[in-house]
Amino acid sequence: MRAHHERTLRLSSTRRGARLARHLATQQFTDWTGLPHDSEPARTVALVTAELASNAIRHGSLPGRDFWLALLLLPHGLRIEVTDTRPECLPQVSVPPPADAASGRGLLLVQAYADRWGCTVIDEYTKTTWAEVSLGSL
Protein backbone atom coordinates (compact mmCIF):
# COMPACT_ATOMS: atom_id res chain seq x y z
CA MET A 1 0.00 0.00 0.00
CA ARG A 2 1.69 3.17 -1.17
CA ALA A 3 0.21 6.56 -0.28
CA HIS A 4 0.25 9.43 -2.75
CA HIS A 5 -0.05 11.90 0.13
CA GLU A 6 0.24 11.43 3.85
CA ARG A 7 -0.52 13.59 6.89
CA THR A 8 -0.18 12.70 10.58
CA LEU A 9 -1.41 14.81 13.47
CA ARG A 10 -1.35 14.46 17.26
CA LEU A 11 -4.57 15.62 18.92
CA SER A 12 -5.83 15.87 22.49
CA SER A 13 -8.07 13.07 23.73
CA THR A 14 -11.00 15.43 24.23
CA ARG A 15 -14.24 16.18 22.43
CA ARG A 16 -12.48 19.21 20.97
CA GLY A 17 -9.72 16.92 19.65
CA ALA A 18 -12.29 14.65 17.99
CA ARG A 19 -14.06 17.62 16.42
CA LEU A 20 -10.73 18.98 15.15
CA ALA A 21 -9.83 15.55 13.70
CA ARG A 22 -13.09 15.54 11.72
CA HIS A 23 -12.55 19.04 10.37
CA LEU A 24 -8.88 18.48 9.51
CA ALA A 25 -9.58 15.15 7.77
CA THR A 26 -12.33 16.68 5.65
CA GLN A 27 -10.21 19.72 4.77
CA GLN A 28 -7.17 17.61 3.87
CA PHE A 29 -9.31 15.23 1.80
CA THR A 30 -10.90 18.05 -0.19
CA ASP A 31 -7.51 19.73 -0.70
CA TRP A 32 -6.01 16.50 -2.05
CA THR A 33 -8.92 15.49 -4.26
CA GLY A 34 -10.47 18.81 -5.30
CA LEU A 35 -13.89 17.54 -4.25
CA PRO A 36 -16.23 19.99 -2.50
CA HIS A 37 -16.83 19.74 1.24
CA ASP A 38 -20.45 18.78 0.65
CA SER A 39 -19.65 15.88 -1.70
CA GLU A 40 -20.65 12.37 -0.67
CA PRO A 41 -17.04 11.15 -0.24
CA ALA A 42 -16.15 14.20 1.90
CA ARG A 43 -19.20 13.66 4.12
CA THR A 44 -18.23 10.00 4.47
CA VAL A 45 -14.68 10.97 5.47
CA ALA A 46 -16.10 13.35 8.09
CA LEU A 47 -18.45 10.72 9.54
CA VAL A 48 -15.88 7.91 9.64
CA THR A 49 -13.18 10.15 11.13
CA ALA A 50 -15.58 11.44 13.78
CA GLU A 51 -16.55 7.91 14.83
CA LEU A 52 -12.97 6.60 14.95
CA ALA A 53 -11.76 9.64 16.92
CA SER A 54 -14.73 9.48 19.29
CA ASN A 55 -14.06 5.80 19.99
CA ALA A 56 -10.38 6.52 20.63
CA ILE A 57 -11.32 9.15 23.19
CA ARG A 58 -14.13 7.22 24.85
CA HIS A 59 -12.61 3.73 24.89
CA GLY A 60 -8.92 4.11 24.06
CA SER A 61 -7.47 6.95 26.05
CA LEU A 62 -5.56 7.18 29.27
CA PRO A 63 -5.40 10.41 31.29
CA GLY A 64 -2.89 12.82 29.78
CA ARG A 65 -2.41 10.78 26.59
CA ASP A 66 -3.22 12.12 23.13
CA PHE A 67 -4.33 10.23 20.03
CA TRP A 68 -2.87 10.29 16.53
CA LEU A 69 -4.74 10.85 13.28
CA ALA A 70 -3.08 9.70 10.06
CA LEU A 71 -4.53 10.33 6.61
CA LEU A 72 -3.18 8.52 3.59
CA LEU A 73 -4.41 9.26 0.07
CA LEU A 74 -4.23 6.00 -1.83
CA PRO A 75 -4.93 5.40 -5.54
CA HIS A 76 -8.41 4.06 -4.72
CA GLY A 77 -9.37 6.26 -1.76
CA LEU A 78 -8.47 7.64 1.63
CA ARG A 79 -7.21 5.60 4.56
CA ILE A 80 -8.02 7.10 7.96
CA GLU A 81 -6.01 5.79 10.91
CA VAL A 82 -6.59 6.67 14.56
CA THR A 83 -3.99 5.46 17.06
CA ASP A 84 -4.77 5.41 20.77
CA THR A 85 -3.13 4.18 23.97
CA ARG A 86 -5.33 1.23 24.94
CA PRO A 87 -4.33 -1.84 22.90
CA GLU A 88 -6.27 -4.09 25.28
CA CYS A 89 -9.56 -2.39 24.32
CA LEU A 90 -10.17 -3.70 20.82
CA PRO A 91 -13.14 -2.35 18.85
CA GLN A 92 -15.96 -4.80 18.36
CA VAL A 93 -19.07 -4.60 16.24
CA SER A 94 -21.88 -6.31 18.03
CA VAL A 95 -25.60 -6.38 17.54
CA PRO A 96 -27.23 -2.97 17.22
CA PRO A 97 -28.10 -1.39 20.55
CA PRO A 98 -31.73 -0.90 21.57
CA ALA A 99 -33.49 1.84 19.63
CA ASP A 100 -33.61 4.10 22.69
CA ALA A 101 -29.88 3.71 23.52
CA ALA A 102 -27.90 6.96 23.43
CA SER A 103 -24.71 5.35 22.06
CA GLY A 104 -23.26 2.17 20.63
CA ARG A 105 -23.72 2.71 16.89
CA GLY A 106 -20.34 4.21 15.94
CA LEU A 107 -18.64 1.12 14.57
CA LEU A 108 -21.84 0.08 12.84
CA LEU A 109 -21.69 3.40 10.97
CA VAL A 110 -18.00 2.88 10.15
CA GLN A 111 -18.80 -0.61 8.89
CA ALA A 112 -21.66 0.73 6.76
CA TYR A 113 -19.81 3.69 5.21
CA ALA A 114 -16.21 2.49 4.89
CA ASP A 115 -15.14 0.05 2.20
CA ARG A 116 -12.87 -1.73 4.67
CA TRP A 117 -11.95 -1.22 8.29
CA GLY A 118 -9.99 -2.97 10.99
CA CYS A 119 -7.74 -2.68 13.98
CA THR A 120 -4.04 -3.41 14.40
CA VAL A 121 -2.24 -3.67 17.73
CA ILE A 122 1.09 -1.97 17.09
CA ASP A 123 2.85 -2.70 20.36
CA GLU A 124 2.03 -3.12 24.03
CA TYR A 125 1.14 0.58 24.32
CA THR A 126 -0.89 1.44 21.23
CA LYS A 127 -3.40 0.24 18.67
CA THR A 128 -4.56 1.72 15.39
CA THR A 129 -8.13 1.53 14.18
CA TRP A 130 -8.35 2.28 10.47
CA ALA A 131 -10.91 2.64 7.72
CA GLU A 132 -10.71 3.12 3.97
CA VAL A 133 -13.17 5.31 2.09
CA SER A 134 -13.39 4.88 -1.68
CA LEU A 135 -13.09 7.77 -4.08
CA GLY A 136 -15.66 6.09 -6.27
CA SER A 137 -15.42 7.04 -9.92
CA LEU A 138 -12.68 9.68 -9.65
Rank of each mutant, 00 (worst) to 15 (best):
G34W: 00
W117E: 07
I122W: 05
L9R: 10
T30W: 00
E6I: 12
R58C: 02
R43G: 10
S61A: 11
A18T: 09
L71V: 02
I122R: 14
E81D: 14
Q27K: 14
G60W: 01
V45I: 04
R58P: 02
V48Q: 00
A131P: 13
A18S: 15
A114R: 01
D100V: 13
A3Q: 04
M1H: 12
A21T: 10
T49S: 01
L20K: 10
D31P: 00
D38C: 05
L74C: 08
V45N: 02
H23E: 15
V93R: 14
L35P: 06
N55C: 05
R2H: 14
G34V: 03
A112L: 11
E88N: 05
P97F: 10
W130V: 11
R10M: 06
T30Q: 03
T8C: 11
R79Q: 13
W130R: 07
Y113N: 11
H59V: 05
L78D: 06
T44M: 10
R10Q: 14
T85W: 07
G17C: 03
E81H: 06
A131L: 10
A56P: 12
A99M: 08
S54G: 15
P87N: 09
E6T: 11
R2Y: 09
T128K: 08
T44W: 03
L135G: 11
L11A: 00
L72R: 15
V93S: 08
I57F: 10
R86D: 00
E81W: 00
W130I: 13
L11V: 04
T33N: 04
L138G: 12
R116G: 04
A42L: 04
S61D: 07
L11C: 03
V48L: 06
L11H: 03
P36Q: 01
V82R: 03
G77F: 07
Q92N: 12
E81Q: 14
R65P: 00
V133K: 06
